[in-house]
Protein backbone atom coordinates (compact mmCIF):
# COMPACT_ATOMS: atom_id res chain seq x y z
CA UNK A 1 0.00 0.00 0.00
CA UNK A 2 2.76 2.41 0.99
CA UNK A 3 4.66 1.41 -2.13
CA UNK A 4 1.98 2.49 -4.56
CA UNK A 5 0.94 5.63 -2.76
CA UNK A 6 4.25 7.25 -2.07
CA UNK A 7 6.57 8.98 -4.48
CA UNK A 8 9.42 6.61 -5.34
CA UNK A 9 12.96 7.44 -4.33
CA UNK A 10 15.01 8.87 -7.22
CA UNK A 11 17.10 5.70 -7.64
CA UNK A 12 14.01 3.61 -8.28
CA UNK A 13 12.53 6.15 -10.64
CA UNK A 14 15.77 6.26 -12.59
CA UNK A 15 15.92 2.50 -12.97
CA UNK A 16 12.22 2.14 -13.75
CA UNK A 17 10.98 1.48 -17.27
CA UNK A 18 10.70 4.38 -19.66
CA UNK A 19 6.94 4.07 -19.73
CA UNK A 20 6.56 4.31 -15.96
CA UNK A 21 9.04 7.18 -15.86
CA UNK A 22 7.05 9.08 -18.41
CA UNK A 23 3.91 8.41 -16.44
CA UNK A 24 5.46 9.73 -13.25
CA UNK A 25 6.60 12.93 -14.90
CA UNK A 26 3.14 13.42 -16.41
CA UNK A 27 1.43 12.79 -13.08
CA UNK A 28 3.73 15.25 -11.33
CA UNK A 29 2.90 17.89 -13.95
CA UNK A 30 -0.77 17.03 -13.53
CA UNK A 31 -0.67 17.83 -9.81
CA UNK A 32 1.10 21.13 -10.39
CA UNK A 33 -1.18 22.08 -13.30
CA UNK A 34 -4.33 21.37 -11.33
CA UNK A 35 -3.02 23.50 -8.47
CA UNK A 36 -2.15 26.40 -10.77
CA UNK A 37 -5.48 26.11 -12.60
CA UNK A 38 -7.38 26.15 -9.30
CA UNK A 39 -5.57 29.30 -8.17
CA UNK A 40 -6.24 30.99 -11.53
CA UNK A 41 -9.95 30.12 -11.39
CA UNK A 42 -10.02 31.36 -7.81
CA UNK A 43 -8.41 34.66 -8.87
CA UNK A 44 -10.79 35.08 -11.83
CA UNK A 45 -13.83 34.41 -9.64
CA UNK A 46 -12.59 37.12 -7.29
CA UNK A 47 -11.87 39.57 -10.13
CA UNK A 48 -15.45 39.28 -11.33
CA UNK A 49 -16.73 39.94 -7.77
CA UNK A 50 -18.97 36.88 -7.81
CA UNK A 51 -18.68 36.78 -4.02
CA UNK A 52 -18.09 39.65 -1.64
CA UNK A 53 -14.31 39.94 -1.02
CA UNK A 54 -14.86 39.63 2.71
CA UNK A 55 -16.24 36.11 2.17
CA UNK A 56 -13.80 35.07 -0.54
CA UNK A 57 -10.52 36.97 -0.52
CA UNK A 58 -8.38 36.63 -3.63
CA UNK A 59 -5.23 34.49 -3.77
CA UNK A 60 -3.21 37.69 -3.76
CA UNK A 61 -4.77 38.95 -0.55
CA UNK A 62 -4.29 35.52 1.04
CA UNK A 63 -0.62 35.74 0.08
CA UNK A 64 -0.50 39.22 1.63
CA UNK A 65 -2.13 37.86 4.77
CA UNK A 66 0.54 35.16 4.94
CA UNK A 67 3.31 37.73 4.60
CA UNK A 68 1.68 39.89 7.24
CA UNK A 69 1.30 36.89 9.52
CA UNK A 70 4.94 35.90 9.05
CA UNK A 71 6.12 39.46 9.71
CA UNK A 72 3.90 40.54 12.58
CA UNK A 73 1.99 37.52 13.82
CA UNK A 74 -1.64 37.71 14.89
CA UNK A 75 -3.46 38.21 18.17
CA UNK A 76 -0.28 38.77 20.12
CA UNK A 77 1.90 35.86 18.96
CA UNK A 78 3.72 34.96 15.82
CA UNK A 79 2.63 32.29 13.34
CA UNK A 80 5.63 30.23 14.41
CA UNK A 81 4.47 30.31 18.02
CA UNK A 82 1.15 28.83 16.92
CA UNK A 83 2.85 26.23 14.75
CA UNK A 84 5.24 25.37 17.54
CA UNK A 85 2.62 24.99 20.24
CA UNK A 86 0.39 22.88 17.98
CA UNK A 87 3.32 20.68 16.95
CA UNK A 88 4.37 20.22 20.54
CA UNK A 89 0.86 19.17 21.55
CA UNK A 90 0.57 16.74 18.68
CA UNK A 91 4.02 15.28 19.36
CA UNK A 92 3.27 14.64 23.02
CA UNK A 93 -0.24 13.34 22.37
CA UNK A 94 0.71 11.13 19.44
CA UNK A 95 3.84 9.66 21.00
CA UNK A 96 1.80 9.05 24.15
CA UNK A 97 -0.88 7.28 22.11
CA UNK A 98 1.70 5.01 20.47
CA UNK A 99 3.51 4.31 23.73
CA UNK A 100 0.21 3.33 25.37
CA UNK A 101 -1.61 1.86 22.37
CA UNK A 102 1.01 -0.59 21.07
CA UNK A 103 1.66 -2.44 24.36
CA UNK A 104 -2.07 -2.50 25.18
CA UNK A 105 -2.80 -3.85 21.70
CA UNK A 106 -0.11 -6.51 22.07
CA UNK A 107 -1.48 -7.57 25.46
CA UNK A 108 -5.04 -7.61 24.15
CA UNK A 109 -4.03 -9.75 21.17
CA UNK A 110 -2.20 -12.24 23.37
CA UNK A 111 -4.31 -12.47 26.52
CA UNK A 112 -7.99 -13.13 26.06
CA UNK A 113 -9.10 -11.83 29.45
CA UNK A 114 -7.39 -8.49 28.79
CA UNK A 115 -9.02 -8.29 25.38
CA UNK A 116 -12.43 -8.93 26.86
CA UNK A 117 -11.87 -6.36 29.59
CA UNK A 118 -10.75 -3.52 27.35
CA UNK A 119 -12.61 -4.20 24.10
CA UNK A 120 -16.07 -2.99 25.28
CA UNK A 121 -14.60 0.39 26.21
CA UNK A 122 -12.87 0.58 22.86
CA UNK A 123 -16.07 -0.25 21.01
CA UNK A 124 -17.87 2.41 23.03
CA UNK A 125 -15.29 5.14 22.52
CA UNK A 126 -14.80 4.57 18.81
CA UNK A 127 -18.16 5.65 17.35
CA UNK A 128 -18.29 8.82 19.50
CA UNK A 129 -16.76 11.74 17.57
CA UNK A 130 -13.82 13.09 19.62
CA UNK A 131 -15.40 16.55 19.40
CA UNK A 132 -18.17 15.36 21.69
CA UNK A 133 -15.71 14.98 24.54
CA UNK A 134 -14.45 18.56 24.39
CA UNK A 135 -17.09 20.18 26.66
CA UNK A 136 -16.53 17.46 29.24
CA UNK A 137 -12.76 17.84 29.05
CA UNK A 138 -13.01 21.60 29.41
CA UNK A 139 -15.16 21.23 32.52
CA UNK A 140 -12.74 18.72 33.99
CA UNK A 141 -9.37 20.12 32.94
CA UNK A 142 -9.99 23.74 31.87
CA UNK A 143 -8.39 25.06 28.71
CA UNK A 144 -4.75 24.23 29.47
CA UNK A 145 -2.60 21.66 27.75
CA UNK A 146 -4.01 18.61 29.49
CA UNK A 147 -7.46 18.49 27.83
CA UNK A 148 -5.85 18.71 24.38
CA UNK A 149 -3.44 15.89 25.07
CA UNK A 150 -6.24 13.80 26.56
CA UNK A 151 -8.41 14.40 23.51
CA UNK A 152 -5.60 13.29 21.19
CA UNK A 153 -5.15 10.17 23.31
CA UNK A 154 -8.89 9.39 23.23
CA UNK A 155 -8.99 9.75 19.48
CA UNK A 156 -5.72 8.03 18.59
CA UNK A 157 -5.24 5.18 21.07
CA UNK A 158 -8.13 3.08 19.68
CA UNK A 159 -6.70 3.39 16.16
CA UNK A 160 -3.26 2.22 17.35
CA UNK A 161 -4.70 -0.59 19.47
CA UNK A 162 -6.88 -1.94 16.68
CA UNK A 163 -4.00 -1.81 14.18
CA UNK A 164 -1.67 -3.58 16.60
CA UNK A 165 -4.18 -6.35 17.29
CA UNK A 166 -4.80 -6.89 13.60
CA UNK A 167 -1.03 -6.97 13.02
CA UNK A 168 -0.56 -9.69 15.63
CA UNK A 169 -3.53 -11.71 14.39
CA UNK A 170 -2.33 -11.33 10.83
CA UNK A 171 1.01 -13.07 11.40
CA UNK A 172 1.28 -15.68 8.62
CA UNK A 173 0.80 -19.18 10.14
CA UNK A 174 3.82 -20.52 8.24
CA UNK A 175 6.12 -18.10 10.07
CA UNK A 176 4.80 -19.44 13.36
CA UNK A 177 5.14 -23.08 12.26
CA UNK A 178 8.72 -22.50 11.17
CA UNK A 179 9.65 -21.00 14.53
CA UNK A 180 7.86 -23.78 16.43
CA UNK A 181 9.62 -26.54 14.54
CA UNK A 182 12.96 -24.81 15.09
CA UNK A 183 12.37 -25.06 18.82
CA UNK A 184 11.37 -21.49 19.66
CA UNK A 185 9.53 -20.99 22.94
CA UNK A 186 6.28 -19.03 23.09
CA UNK A 187 8.06 -15.92 24.34
CA UNK A 188 10.73 -16.25 21.65
CA UNK A 189 8.04 -16.61 19.00
CA UNK A 190 6.40 -13.47 20.31
CA UNK A 191 9.61 -11.46 20.32
CA UNK A 192 11.25 -12.78 17.16
CA UNK A 193 8.27 -13.54 14.92
CA UNK A 194 4.99 -11.94 15.99
CA UNK A 195 6.38 -8.55 16.94
CA UNK A 196 8.25 -7.91 13.67
CA UNK A 197 5.37 -9.40 11.68
CA UNK A 198 2.94 -6.91 13.16
CA UNK A 199 5.13 -3.84 12.53
CA UNK A 200 3.77 -3.04 9.05
CA UNK A 201 0.20 -2.95 10.38
CA UNK A 202 1.30 -0.85 13.35
CA UNK A 203 2.78 1.68 10.95
CA UNK A 204 -0.42 1.77 8.92
CA UNK A 205 -2.27 2.48 12.15
CA UNK A 206 0.22 5.22 12.98
CA UNK A 207 -0.33 6.87 9.60
CA UNK A 208 -4.08 6.84 10.11
CA UNK A 209 -3.58 7.81 13.75
CA UNK A 210 -1.53 10.92 13.04
CA UNK A 211 -4.37 12.25 10.90
CA UNK A 212 -6.89 11.51 13.64
CA UNK A 213 -4.63 13.13 16.25
CA UNK A 214 -4.25 16.27 14.16
CA UNK A 215 -8.01 16.50 13.63
CA UNK A 216 -8.62 16.13 17.37
CA UNK A 217 -6.06 18.76 18.23
CA UNK A 218 -7.27 21.37 15.78
CA UNK A 219 -10.84 20.77 16.96
CA UNK A 220 -9.79 21.22 20.58
CA UNK A 221 -7.90 24.39 19.74
CA UNK A 222 -10.90 25.75 17.84
CA UNK A 223 -13.11 25.46 20.88
CA UNK A 224 -10.91 25.91 23.88
CA UNK A 225 -7.48 27.46 23.47
CA UNK A 226 -5.65 30.76 23.43
CA UNK A 227 -2.78 29.56 21.23
CA UNK A 228 -2.26 27.20 18.34
CA UNK A 229 -3.35 26.93 14.72
CA UNK A 230 -6.93 25.96 15.55
CA UNK A 231 -7.21 28.96 17.78
CA UNK A 232 -5.72 31.18 15.02
CA UNK A 233 -8.37 30.08 12.54
CA UNK A 234 -11.18 30.50 15.04
CA UNK A 235 -9.99 33.92 16.27
CA UNK A 236 -9.52 35.29 12.76
CA UNK A 237 -12.91 33.89 11.74
CA UNK A 238 -14.63 35.74 14.57
CA UNK A 239 -12.94 38.93 13.37
CA UNK A 240 -14.11 38.12 9.80
CA UNK A 241 -10.51 38.09 8.58
CA UNK A 242 -11.10 35.32 6.08
CA UNK A 243 -7.69 35.64 4.40
CA UNK A 244 -6.02 34.72 7.67
CA UNK A 245 -8.50 31.87 8.16
CA UNK A 246 -7.48 30.51 4.76
CA UNK A 247 -3.77 30.85 5.59
CA UNK A 248 -4.42 28.95 8.81
CA UNK A 249 -6.27 26.18 6.97
CA UNK A 250 -3.45 25.84 4.44
CA UNK A 251 -0.82 25.66 7.19
CA UNK A 252 -2.88 23.03 9.03
CA UNK A 253 -3.16 20.99 5.85
CA UNK A 254 0.51 21.26 4.96
CA UNK A 255 1.62 20.34 8.49
CA UNK A 256 -0.73 17.35 8.58
CA UNK A 257 0.69 16.13 5.29
CA UNK A 258 4.26 16.69 6.49
CA UNK A 259 3.61 14.60 9.59
CA UNK A 260 2.38 11.70 7.52
CA UNK A 261 5.44 11.96 5.29
CA UNK A 262 7.63 11.89 8.38
CA UNK A 263 6.01 8.65 9.51
CA UNK A 264 6.49 7.18 6.04
CA UNK A 265 10.20 7.96 6.13
CA UNK A 266 10.41 6.35 9.54
CA UNK A 267 8.39 3.39 8.27
CA UNK A 268 10.69 2.82 5.33
CA UNK A 269 13.64 2.60 7.70
CA UNK A 270 12.00 0.29 10.22
CA UNK A 271 10.05 -2.01 7.88
CA UNK A 272 11.92 -1.99 4.58
CA UNK A 273 10.33 -5.34 3.73
CA UNK A 274 6.85 -3.83 3.63
CA UNK A 275 5.02 -4.79 0.45
CA UNK A 276 7.45 -7.66 -0.15
CA UNK A 277 5.43 -10.23 1.81
Amino acid sequence: MAETESAPPPAVAASGSLASRGWRITSRYATVSVLIAAVIVWQVVCDFHLFPPIALPSPVSVLNALILLLAHGYGGHSLFDDIWISSLRIAIGFVGAVVIGVPVGLLMARIDIIFRTIDPFLQFIRPVPPLAYIPLLVVWFGIGELPKIVLILIGTIPVIIIGTISGVKGTPPLRLSVARTLGASESQIFRHVILPSSLPEIFTAMRIGIGVAWTCLVAAELIAADQGLGWLVQYAGQALQVAIVIVGIIVIGVLGYAMELLIRVFERRVVPWRGHG
Binding site: P172, L174, R175, S177, H192, V193, P196, L199, W273
Partner: peptide, 9 residues
Amino acid sequence: FQQPGLYPW
Protein backbone atom coordinates in the same frame (compact mmCIF):
# COMPACT_ATOMS: atom_id res chain seq x y z
CA PHE B 1 8.17 -26.66 4.33
CA GLN B 2 6.75 -26.52 0.84
CA GLN B 3 7.15 -22.72 0.89
CA PRO B 4 10.37 -21.10 2.15
CA GLY B 5 8.71 -19.20 5.03
CA LEU B 6 11.72 -16.93 5.60
CA TYR B 7 11.65 -13.91 7.89
CA PRO B 8 11.81 -10.79 5.71
CA TRP B 9 13.29 -8.62 8.47
